[in-house]
Structure formats: C-alpha cells, structure tokens
Design a protein around this nucleic acid. Structure first.
Lengths: 237, 237
DNA sequence: ACATCACAGATTGCATACAATCTGACCGCC
DNA sequence: GGCGGTCAGATTGTATGCAATCTGTGATGT
C-alpha cells in the first residue's frame, strides 16, 4: 500500500532476517498469528528454509518492537499485551500522534494528499467487503493511514515510533477488540484529512485525539480478572 | 543513578548480550566511543571474552536504537547522525517530552520529587567540577534527568522512546556540540521540577520545550558542507 | 492415592567452522 | 607515471554442533 517499506526501521544488512521479520510482523498485524503463539526457532527456520541463526535475528528484532516476548530457555511467543500495557500504548499514541498531526498539517504536499486519498479509498473499499480476510485487510489499512500520517509529517524517527505503536495496537485489538470497527470508525480518517487540507493543525490534532479515544473505547479492557484465562487458552501452543 | 536499569527495553534472555550492549551504550553516551568508531565483532568479542554470536546480538540491539550503523559485509560503526537527523531528533523530543512533562506534572509523587532532587544535586555537583571526566558525567546526568521525567510519567513505552532519543542526542552533542553547556543550561531542569511541584502541567511542558530549544541552539548544525570532512576525520578508526 | 524425585526429550544459548563478500595492495600494462 | 585488474587478507554472513536449561512423564516411596 504505502510505497515506502519498513526499511527505515532496520539495518540494511541482515537481508534474510529482515524478510522473515517482515513476514512474521505482517502475520502478527493481520492476526494470522494470535497472541501467545509459540515461535520456535527450528520451526520458523524450517518454514523459511534458513538456519536458526537468521531466525534468531528476526525474532530479536521483533522482541525489540514489543511484538514478541522472549523467555530465557523457553522460546519466543507472540506478545500478549496486558490491559495495562494497552492503556499505556494508547496514551503514548495520543501524545505522539497529536504532534504528528500538527506537523503533518503544515507539511502535507499535493503528493501527500494523493496518497491520503488512495489510502482512504482502499479503506472504504475494504470496509464494504465482508469476511475475515477483508476484516484483516481493513485493520491493516487502518494502520497504514496512521503510518502515512507520520510519513507525511516527514520525521523518520517519529514514523518509526508510530510503526511500533500501530503494530502493537493491532495486537491489542486482536486481544481486546470488540467489534472490529475499532479500525475505522465513522470516516474519522477522512475528517482528519479534511482538517489537514485546511491547514488546521489544531483541528487535525483534536480529531486524531478523539479518533484514538474511539478506538480505545471499542476495546474491552475492563475484564481484568478473566483475561489471564482467555490468554492462557489462546496460548495453548 | 536511576535505580531502574535498562531492563525495560530488552529481553530478559540474552543476559550476556545485554551486558555488552549496556557497556557499549554507556561508552557511546559518555563520548568515550566517538561517532564513526568501528565496532569489529571479533575485537569486541575479545574484549568481553565472548563469541561473535553474543556480540552480534548486542550490536543488532544498538543498531535498532540508532546508536550504531551497520553496513552489510562491512561492519558496525558508532552512528554519526547527520544535521538533518539531528533536527528530526530534536523535533521528536519536543513532541514527546512536552507530553511527558504534562503527564509527569499530574503523576509525580513525593518519592518522585525525591528522585528529582537527587538528580538535580548530582547535576550541579558535576557542573562545578572541571575536566573531561566530569564533563562526560554531566552530559550523562543531564540525560538521566530527562529519562527520570519519562519514568515519573509512568509510561514504560514512552520511557523507552525517551531513552533512545536521549542516547541519540548524546551522539549529536558529541558531533555538533559547541560549549557542552548543552547539557544543562541555566538551571532549567530545576525550573521544570518547580513547575511539576506546582502541578502546572502547561508550564512544565512549556519549560521543557524552551529547554530543548536551548540545547538545540547550542549545537552547530549550520556548517553542512564542512561536516563530512570532520566526520571522516573522526571516523579514522 | 498422593507427593516427590529422577530422567528423557525438546528447545534454547553459545561457540566455532566454513562460505561469501569487501578492502587494499601489488603487479602488469598502456 | 597513471590506470586497471587480480589476488591475498580480513571481516562479516550463515550453518551447525555441543552444552545448558526447562518441561513433562513415570517410577518410587510413604
């Protein structure tokens, strides 16, 4: 979707490890790999036909991003953010994305708006479709919008932070999402773009904040006591 | 200084790699390792008496943080942020630290203020001393203050971002720092703590912003054309 | 029947060996 | 003398082997 890949994040070395990293990352973001899933080095290595060395590098990379949890002598698992972590995540998103929106309002070029339009079209298209596959794609596209926002702001450092936050948000939605409408809301993305077009930095910032609030509201973070059980059930290898 | 170590950031596995990572990281932050220095796997491994495998993990970790630049089949080097990257870094810091200050103003406990006081005392003590060693320690202590701010805000995710930003700022100061007063200014840290004590979120946020502006002002980012030469000279192994 | 302990299987942690690649020097040629 | 190519050394990329650690099973004793 976005033409810039994740190469920003990573080393240009580690070709192979990066490919595996991105594949696993995509699978996690699209909820094909659910939280708690064990990522055995040997198994992953066999799937991608590489040695454990390369797999370890990829898993380490994902661990730094918070998408994978590594336990000593136990192995690596797809992360299962706690409700508390989820709250911290959204707090961080509010702080960072508000700033990004302000910057983007001043920086956005015509080319940027073209990308926004393409992204919005893709989103609405996917939302009209039904089925789990398009649900996944919709969550992904929703994330792409936020990353695009960071991209337009033109700060690679903040863009990388956003990538991490978005990816982890996807995990949170997988665990605590209620409707799945979390991803898009009532064309709030469109409203944000409109504010950007008006160069209304404060308006865009405010819209982003309420948008994130809406995403968070759609989560079920309250059932603190029950979660460990459900998590455990999902974690059964 | 701060009792919480960097364990937040990392995997609890990779004991040994983490130790090396932290040692290298500290050396970079304290300017004992200057930008451009080559970090040969074999050499580092010999120094710490571990195999290249462990060193690679440590270097990979530092690469993700942006403290090390890895070139395929060439090796790893202490990063040399460009002036452009430096600007982006401070832009990110303004966005993130302003938010952190607001949160910290509401969250700070008595225990937090005790830590602030200890940090400020340490800073002023180091500033009174002369010599390169205390200069290094001062830069380090200055960073610790900002991390402490993030710590008090109570959001581990933003804390981790701050750790990265502070570490990279130290690199930038090493490259472009003019006076070294970059680290502290005119007791601006103390003013920030005072605002926190007053629960003045907006005031604290504003003070943080001007503080970061002052740090950036003290840098010499203008001489774009000359830098590559100086950088190259510093990079001579 | 229950609890405890010991062992076997599996998985990760680490070191090392080999292959691929790059850098720099030397040599021949123009 | 300058330029280009080839080769040796060094360094990283990857695979694999062995040691350390953990999990779960089964036997044994109370």
């Amino acid at each position: 979707m976005t033409q810039t890949s994740f190469s920003e994040t990573a080393v240009q070395s580690d070709d192979r490890a990066m490919v595996i990293r991105d594949q696993l990352r995509d699978a996690i973001i699209e909820h094909r790999l659910v939280p708690g899933t064990k990522l055995s080095e040997a198994e992953v290595g066999k799937l991608f036909d590489v040695s454990r060395t390369v797999v370890r590098a990829a898993l380490q990379s994902l661990t730094f991003e918070g998408l994978v949890r590594a336990e000593r002598n136990r192995g690596a698992f797809v992360a299962s953010p706690s409700p508390e972590e989820a709250r911290q995540l959204f707090e961080a998103r509010r702080q960072i994305e508000a700033g990004i929106a302000r910057i983007a309002a001043n920086q956005a070029t015509a080319e940027a708006f073209a990308r926004f339009d393409a992204c919005l079209e893709e989103e609405t298209r996917l939302l009209q479709e039904r089925g789990p596959a398009s649900r996944r794609a919709a969550i992904r596209a929703s994330g792409e919008f936020h990353i695009l926002l960071a991209d337009v702001a033109g700060n690679p450092i903040m863009r990388r932070f956003m990538e991490e936050l978005i990816a982890r948000s996807s995990l949170v939605i997988a665990l605590y999402g209620r409707t799945g409408a979390s991803s898009c809301g009532h064309n709030e993305h469109g409203d944000i773009v409109a504010a950007l077009r008006d160069r209304d930095a404060e308006g865009a910032s405010r819209l982003v904040l309420t948008h994130i609030d809406h995403i968070e509201t759609d989560l079920d973070l309250r059932s603190y006591a029950e979660r460990p059980l459900r998590e455990a059930l999902l974690s059964v290898e």
